[in-house]
Structure formats: structure tokens, C-alpha cells
Nucleic acid binder design. Structure first.
Lengths: 214, 214
DNA sequence: CATTCACAGTACCGTACGGTACGGTTCGCC
DNA sequence: GGCGAACCGTACCGTACGGTACTGTGAATG
């Protein structure tokens, strides 16, 4: 696959990927406080010296973790299918559910917490990295879907980004933040389906053409 | 005013409030990392021993900071005015702008980052505190406004919380999270007005009665 | 077999932080 | 004036962490 990976994202050896995996697991069930260099080394059965050789310093390790995770989530599906009102709605609901499930994922929550914790420090770059590789990526899928809907005469909007912003807000609202703040996410996962349907329904009422409601 | 403060929120002496103020300022422009007990003591011209006597331990200090800040933002305006389509829209836009400006505030961002950073640890309570005193409080204002709109026949909705959730999502979308991740908030403050208007416009299209669009 | 390389394991160092203890000072009160 | 409470400033302690250096080991290479 490979597809000319982003130049700023160096690829790591399998061994190093294993280490990053261990570090992510450690972060997920221990929080940022548990993510010490010694802890990562112990969990991954490697030496601290190797960590520093491979990733430079702690921040380099964190960046590598984010890049690694993003590379695993790299989601794209080219739905070259011709859209009808029903299939558009189905695809939107599917997108909404996927989005909610990604946001509610253990690793996603842990990484977002990590990046937010580092956001106050200068530089840090972690926030923009998450932003770039996370939302931008999934936003492209939504953007393509929206434009396909417009091309099929099912959606009416001027600015694609505005429409996506609205869709995102209808789907997520402050759910993401509540989960980041520690609200039990397991309890609300069961409602994702209904939530996705309601959000898409509202979105279609706002941006659907009369043709789509026929 | 006083109005029987929450029993779990002890009131502090003026001196202690000053200390909390200094601590908040320190947190705002230094991030969580800068919020050390020694730093707070130095910034507030008090001794560490006093900090521990007053607030128990570091977590107690953090809780006190959140409670203190929430007590300052206690916003409620009883608009006992009779609503028309225009005044409802004005009030909603005003609410939206206020909400955006609160969320974009230095202190709000810093406290949310702090609570999110502590969310992975057990207990912690900071997240629920922020949630309770932050969103719940401002949500009551919105809820009252929505119900007043419904009573006036201008809004149509079944569940008030659902409607508020939609309104919140339309206003905020992922803006809050982006700011928490470090995206420059100053650049987008200027758009709050337009954003508020667009969100309220969409909300009224979804939940407004035909009477309100007349 | 000798050499080299990559790495684990561990000991170590400097520092920073949470929390405690203590001397000195101010202020109210009898 | 004498006394005690509150409190500041600072020194101190234990610990934990980021980062470095050193030793041992196994596997590849010649």
C-alpha cells in the first residue's frame, strides 16, 4: 500500500511498532501519568537507551505514538456508487456511527487527553498533529460524501466546510468533550445508532433538496 | 446574593479567594505544568504550609479553583419578557455568543485542559465538577429560554434536552475541542457573531414553528 | 573463531515536585 | 505588656522521573 507516506512521518521498524503499541496500551489504561520512559521500556521489554535512540526524547515518543495510531486508522472508502436519497442517508448514518465510535475509542480518548494536556506548552505540535491526521482525514471522507450528494442533486449547500461543520456538530455536540472529561462512555455507546440517525435526519432537513425528501 | 450555596462547596475567606485567583492566573499563562504548590505560594505571597492547611492537598487546591471560578461565572438572567419571533431569535443569538465567548475564555480553556488531564485517574471528580457547574449551569439558562419559546408557540420540540443538545452542537461543533488542542482562538473570536447567527438560524429552521418564521 | 552490531538490563545522576517542619513576624485580644 | 493564633518564608525530606552511561549477551558477518 505505502502510497508515498507523508514525508514528516518516518516509518518505524516492526520492533519499534511493537514498542509503540505497548506504549499506547500503557497510555490507555494508565493515563498520561503512567506513561513514563521506564514504564514503556518495561512494558515493551526494551531498554530506555533504545527508546532514546529511536525516538530522541519523550516528546518524540509521543509524536511517534500519534503518528503510529493515525497510520492504523487511515480510513478511506471510495464509494463510487451513484447516490439516491436513501443511499445518501445510509452513508451519512454510517459515517456518523463510525465517527462516534472512533471518538469514543479508548486510544482516541487517551491520545486526545494527552495532546490537550500538552497544548498549553509552546510548540508541542501534538494538537495540530492529532487535528491534521485525525479530523482532517475523516473530514475528507465526509467532504467527498457531501459533494457526491450535491452532485446528485440531493444536497444544497454553498460552502462544503460549513456544511461539514454543521454535520459534525449535529452528530457529536459536546459528547466528545464529555467523554474526554471522564463521563462513562460505555454507557452511551448503545445510543450511537439512534444518535446518528437523529443527527443525519436533522442535517437532511437543513441541507437536503426537495428532491431528497421525496 | 449567596442563595444557599451548594453544601459541598465551602466558601473561602477573601484571602483564600485571592490565592485562588493567583493560582488561576498562574494556570492560565503557564499551563498545568507551571501550577506547582511552590509556584502558587510564590505567586500568591503565601506559604506552602498555608496552602496545605486551607486546601488539604494539591487536588483540593484544584477543586477549589474550579469551584471558585464557577462561582464567578454564575450567570443567570431571568428574561420574564414576553417573547416574539424576533426577541427569541435575539436571545438565542445572544446566548450563542455568550456561550462561545465563555468557552473561548482563557480560564475556561485552562481549567478544561486541567480537568481533562486528570480525567484518566480514578475518582478525580474534576471532570464532573466542571460538567456540573459549567455546562449544567449555562444549560439551565438555555433550557429556560427554549421552554419560554415553546410556551410562546415559537418552538416545537419534544424533549428539551435533545433540543438543547442540538442547539449546542450547532453553535459549538468541534470548535471547543480545537481550541483545547491549541488552535489559536484569538483568530476566530471575530467570527463568533456570524457563527452564532448561523447556528441560531439553523436551529430555528429545525425547531421553529411556522409561526416563528412568519 | 574474532569482530561488530543491536539491544536488554540496570545502575546512576540531576532535578523537580509534593508534602512537612520550623523559626520569625504581625495582629488581635486580655 | 503578655499571649496565642495565623501566617510568611524557607529549609528540608522522600520520591519519582527524564535522560545518560555502562555492562552483558546473542546474533550476524568476515
Amino acid at each position: 500500500m505505502q502510497l508515498a507516506a507523508h514525508p514528516h512521518q518516518p516509518d518505524y521498524s516492526p520492533r519499534q511498532n511493537d514498542v509503540l503499541d505497548s506504549a499506547l496500551r500503557l497510555l490507555v489504561d494508565g493515563g498520561e501519568k503512567a506513561l513514563t520512559t521506564a514504564g514503556v521500556a518495561r512494558a515493551a521489554n526494551c531498554s530506555k537507551e533504545s527508546l532514546y535512540k529511536w525516538f530522541g526524547d519523550r516528546d518524540g515518543l509521543l509524536s511517534a505514538m500519534i503518528g503510529f495510531q493515525a497510520s492504523k486508522v487511515r480510513t478511506f472508502d471510495d464509494t463510487a456508487e451513484t447516490l439516491t436519497a436513501e443511499t445518501l442517508q445510509e452513508h451519512l448514518v454510517l459515517f456518523a456511527r463510525d465517527l462516534l465510535e472512533v471518538l469514543a475509542g479508548d486510544v482516541s480518548l487517551a491520545l486526545n487527553r494527552l495532546a490537550i494536556g500538552q497544548a498549553s506548552r509552546d510548540g508541542s505540535k501534538l494538537g495540530s498533529m492529532l487535528q491534521e491526521r485525525g479530523r482532517r482525514q475523516i473530514g475528507k471522507r465526509a467532504g467527498a460524501l457531501l459533494e457526491a450528494g450535491r452532485d446528485a442533486g440531493l444536497l444544497v449547500f454553498g460552502d462544503r466546510d460549513d456544511a461539514y461543520d454543521t454535520l459534525y456538530g449535529l452528530i457529536v455536540s459536546d459528547l466528545h468533550l464529555r467523554m474526554l472529561l471522564g463521563e462513562d462512555s460505555g454507557r452511551m455507546v448503545k445510543d450511537f445508532g439512534r444518535r446518528a440517525e437523529k443527527a443525519v435526519s436533522a442535517f437532511l432537513r437543513l441541507y437536503g433538496s426537495e428532491k431528497s425528501s421525496a
